[in-house]
């Protein structure tokens, strides 16, 4: 079970990253749990400086961009 966290204050791009990440996880057939983090202090605490960002099991994987579903699948593997 992996926890996929999407960080962002609710901008349009954060929503797209959320959808892409969930689609990628589904396509990989992995067990996952999605989590949205929109609290600014929590985002800063995670060391993130550009939103949207994505972390898997607490490990920050990307910030400030929205990759394609294919690229996310590589990242989530």
């Amino acid at each position: 079970m992996k926890t996929i966290q999407i960080f962002g204050g609710g901008c349009a791009k954060c929503g797209i990253l959320y959808q892409h990440a969930e689609a990628a996880a589904k396509e990989l057939g992995m067990e996952y749990r999605m989590e949205k983090v929109s609290d600014y202090e929590k985002i800063a605490e995670a060391g993130i400086m550009a939103t949207p960002a994505l972390a898997v099991d607490g490990k920050l994987m990307l910030e400030g961009r929205v990759p394609t579903i294919a690229a996310l699948k590589e990242l989530l593997k």
């Binding site: 960080f7 962002g8 204050g9 901008c11 600014y40 202090e41 985002i43 800063a44 060391g47 993130i48 400086m49 550009a50 939103t51 400030g64």
Partner: peptide, 17 residues
Amino acid sequence: TPFCTCSAIPLFLGFIQ
């Protein structure tokens, strides 16, 4: 560095903290 209003806070806190 691109500046977008929606990233201003994490950026600011990231610097200060």
